[in-house]
Each structure stands twice: as C-alpha cells, then as structure tokens.
C-alpha cells in the first residue's frame, strides 16, 4: 500500500521525478509501442518506411551535394548518412518533445501521472525509429567498405548520452511549451535553421579556420557522439567535454522545471 502526501509544504525530493519515470516504465513503453504501431498501421512494409525515408534522403543529397561540394562520393556518402541518422533522432525528439505535454493534456487532467512520462515516451519511440534507421547506415557502411574499429563500441555510450541530454532538454521544453504557446514555433524554426548551420551536409573542415560555428553548436556535439564512432573514430575531447557539460546543465534545468511545474502544470493545459 502506498502512502501519498500532497501538500505545498512537503515538497517531494528533487529526484522523485526521475524515480517516477523509471517506475512508470510500463506506461511510456506501451505508449511508445502504440505510437510506432499506429504510424505505420495500414502500410505494407510497416515501420520499414522509416528506413526507406532515410535511404531516399541519403541517396538524393549525397548524389547532388558530393558534386556541388566537390567531395569524393563514398566519403561524402558515409559522412552524410551517419550525420543524418543522428540529426533525425535529435530533431524528431526535440520537435515531438515540445508538443508532448500539450498533446497529452487529457491524460494529465485525469490520471495522477508524472509529466516526464511523455518525455520518456518520445525518447523511447525515437530510439525505435533510430534502430530502423541504423539498418540503412549499416548498408552504406558495408557498401563503402568502411573498416570496423573498436571505436564502434562507443556508439551505445554516445547514443545513451545523447538520449539522456535530449530527455532532460524536452523535459524542460515540454512543460514550458504548454505554458508559453509561442515557444513551440520558436523551437521549430530554430531546428530548421540549425539543420543548415550544423555540419551534416557540409563538413566542418570546409569552414576553414572558423571553428566557433561548430564548437559552440550543441547540435554538432550531439551528432558527433553518434557519428564519430560509426565513422570509425572516437569523438574529439572537445565534444566529450561539451556533452558532459550539456548533460549536467540540462539535468539541473530539468530538475528546476520539474520542481516548478509539478503543481502548476494542471493550469497550463
């Protein structure tokens, strides 16, 4: 039997939200599975449409841009597909994360569930999508005869780090987008611009000596956590430091937002 005390004075411990997310895993796991099932419900190849979409993107951009940017085709193909794989994960999570609370207002109004269930649902769902996408990238790597190195072992670590950072980020943006409805538009604009500002279709080396645009770009580091091990090397030290700082920073902000929004979220829906 559980005992709950709900009052403004006895605030729950700051990590209770994290504990709740783990405790409520059957809910977000089930929701995520339903999301995937529904998205491709009446199509013949089902969730493999995810893979196919990425393949089409990679084919289209790599053929055109390797010419425009005068890059060797195979090298460019590998760089682009690893980058797009990571970017798809990041942009989908941030885009879907910003509406995760608004879209689930009905649930929050009728059942005593923690807000971060919906952030976890978005992350889980997009990991499933990522696993479909990585099949395409594996094909590309085989086609381009990229050698397997020990750096590949870093991939799960990099993916986990990226997902944790993204989880904390959307735990912040989800409730805030419910409170400030303009924020969602701002985020969606920002993501579109970021796609072109981040080295995904162009390589960081092409910027000459100007490293600020990559070094100060959080998306660059998030992508590198996944792209570098796939391309056979470990992420740069700078990226690891930046990612650790981002993890810590986003965790702190998420804890603050959880604490602040737990009692107020019901007003914002």
């Amino acid at each position: 039997m559980m005992q709950s005390i709900v009052s403004p004075k006895t605030s729950a411990s700051i990590f209770s939200e994290l504990a709740n997310v783990i405790k409520t895993w059957p809910i977000w796991f089930l929701m995520g599975n339903q999301d995937i099932k529904l998205r491709y419900k009446r199509s013949i190849i089902g969730p493999f449409w995810i893979s196919l979409t990425l393949a089409a993107w990679i084919a289209g951009i790599s053929i055109l841009y390797s010419q425009i940017l005068k890059q060797p085709f195979l090298d460019y193909l590998v760089f682009l597909s690893c980058g797009l794989l990571a970017w798809n994960l990041i942009s989908a999570v941030i885009g879907e994360g910003s509406v995760s609370v608004i879209d689930n207002a009905g649930h929050l109004r009728s059942a005593p569930i923690p807000i971060s269930i919906f952030a976890a649902r978005v992350i889980y769902r997009n990991i499933v999508v990522f696993l479909h996408n990585i099949l395409v990238v594996v094909c590309v790597l085989i086609y381009a005869k990229v050698k397997l190195t020990l750096a590949l072992l870093f991939l799960p670590v990099g993916l986990a780090m990226t997902c944790m950072i993204l989880f904390f980020v959307i735990s912040v943006t989800g409730p805030l987008c419910a409170r400030f409805r303009d924020l969602q538009q701002i985020i969606s604009n920002m993501m579109q611009v970021s796609f072109f500002l981040t080295p995904i279709i162009w390589q960081p080396g092409q910027m000459g000596g100007r490293t600020l645009i990559t070094g100060a770009n959080p998306f660059y580091h998030l992508i590198e956590l996944i792209r570098a091990p796939l391309m056979g090397h470990l992420p740069a030290k700078q990226t690891l430091v930046a990612a650790s700082l981002m993890l810590l920073g986003s965790l702190v902000v998420a804890l603050i937002v959880w604490q602040y929004s737990r009692k107020r979220i019901i007003f914002w829906l």
Binding site: I5, V6, S7, P8, T10, R109, S110, A111, P112, R262
Partner: peptide, 10 residues
Amino acid sequence: IAHPTTGTVE
C-alpha cells in the same frame, strides 16, 4: 491530480 494552493491533502 491537482495540488492544493494552501492546506494539505493526505
């Protein structure tokens, strides 16, 4: 589901 502004609910 909601929390009291003042007072307690146990």
